[in-house]
């Protein structure tokens, strides 16, 4: 099982490689990738350096071009694909049918991975992308139980990558328009969820308020930890009850599932967080490297080390974690 780590800049990329990532995924500095944040991602020069650094150590770089090319700007996405091909990346991570069609036609020898943003949750969907574009791997949305992942792997024509750690998307990736409903910008159209430009914080008599384009996402009393107002992780009212109606601020953590994920044949484990710091990348990569190695050595007696869990807890959203959809009760 490969370990795939995120990098939003060169120091993060090096931290991932130095601490045992098998591959690092990166994006370019525009809306062609799903972490389109100011000051993040790679220009040509840094991308070049990153690819050389990884290749010198025998590791891989994947380029995520995983937003949906807009009908009025398809050219820009084609250019991103061409740029990645010229850089010599080891694979492209794509979601859009049109762009997959372009990439497979223009760069037939370049390895293609299906992004989680393509929302492929079953074997028939994977067959579509495999038959039409020759994808060699797919990243599964964070909606399947372990049993369902196993079923998909059994029937899948391609290698399967799943999320192992990081911020949790509650909705099927690629099928969530909540962000554009509130702000006009979504992962599909713009490469960002709950974009920073729409966020406002205000101290009020009732507490600290976070808003997204005017919509009250949460309100914190004194002593409560305030988190980023990702709109599915706010506190709302449903039938006069106030609470986390969709999801709490929490991160996915699959350490305890590693032997099981290996047993069912997961080919790669992905860490979320291209928007996070080099320190985050370093810590998470270190822990997951050690955990995967330990699980490989002795899957029967594998137990997540308390120190690993502590380290991951510290970098988790809301300082808490969950098995997410892998475990039925979460659903």
């Amino acid at each position: 099982m490969e370990l795939i780590c995120p990098a939003g800049n060169l120091p993060s990329l090096k931290a991932a490689i130095d601490n045992g990532a098998d591959a690092v995924y990166i994006g370019f500095q525009d809306d062609t990738n799903a972490r389109h944040f100011a000051g993040l991602n790679f220009n040509d020069k840094k991308a070049n350096e990153g690819v050389s650094y990884a290749h010198q150590q025998g590791r891989k770089i994947f380029a995520a071009i995983n937003t949906y090319p807009q009908v009025t700007g398809f050219e820009r996405w084609k250019q991103a694909v061409d740029k990645a091909a010229h850089l010599g990346v080891d694979a492209l991570i794509l979601a859009d049918i049109g762009l997959l069609d372009y990439a497979s036609e223009r760069w037939p020898d370049l390895r293609l991975h299906l992004s989680v943003q393509a929302s492929a949750t079953n074997a028939a969907s994977l067959r579509f992308y495999h038959e039409n574009f020759g994808i060699q791997r797919a990243v599964l949305p964070r909606v399947l139980s372990v049993k369902q992942v196993e079923q998909v792997i059994k029937e899948s024509p391609v290698d399967i990558e799943v999320f192992g750690f990081g911020s949790l998307c509650v909705m099927v990736e690629g099928r969530c328009l909540l962000s554009s409903y509130a702000t006009g910008q979504s992962p599909n159209t713009f490469g960002a969820c709950s974009p920073g430009s729409a966020v406002r914080w205000k101290e009020t008599d009732q507490g600290l308020e976070s808003r997204l384009n005017g919509v009250l996402i949460d309100r914190y009393e004194e002593g409560e930890n305030a988190g980023y107002p990702t709109l599915c992780k706010g506190r709302f009212q449903v039938e006069n009850k106030i609470g986390y109606a969709i999801e709490e601020p929490t991160s996915l953590n699959t350490l305890s599932l590693l032997p099981e994920l290996m047993r069912i044949g997961v080919g790669a484990l992905k860490v979320e967080g291209r928007q996070r710091s080099p320190t985050y990348v370093k810590q998470v990569t270190q822990v997951l490297r050690a955990a995967i190695d330990a699980s490989k050595r002795d899957p029967e007696n594998f137990m997540p080390d308390a120190e690993w869990m502590n380290a991951l807890q510290k970098v988790s959203e809301g300082a808490q974690s969950t098995l997410g959809a892998y475990a039925r009760p979460w659903q």
Binding site: Q70, F74, I97, G98, D101, A118, G174, N188
Partner: peptide, 10 residues
């Protein structure tokens, strides 16, 4: 998800 003409065509 059909966001561009090439996807529609395909």
């Amino acid at each position: 998800n059909i966001y561009n003409s090439r996807s529609l065509q395909k």
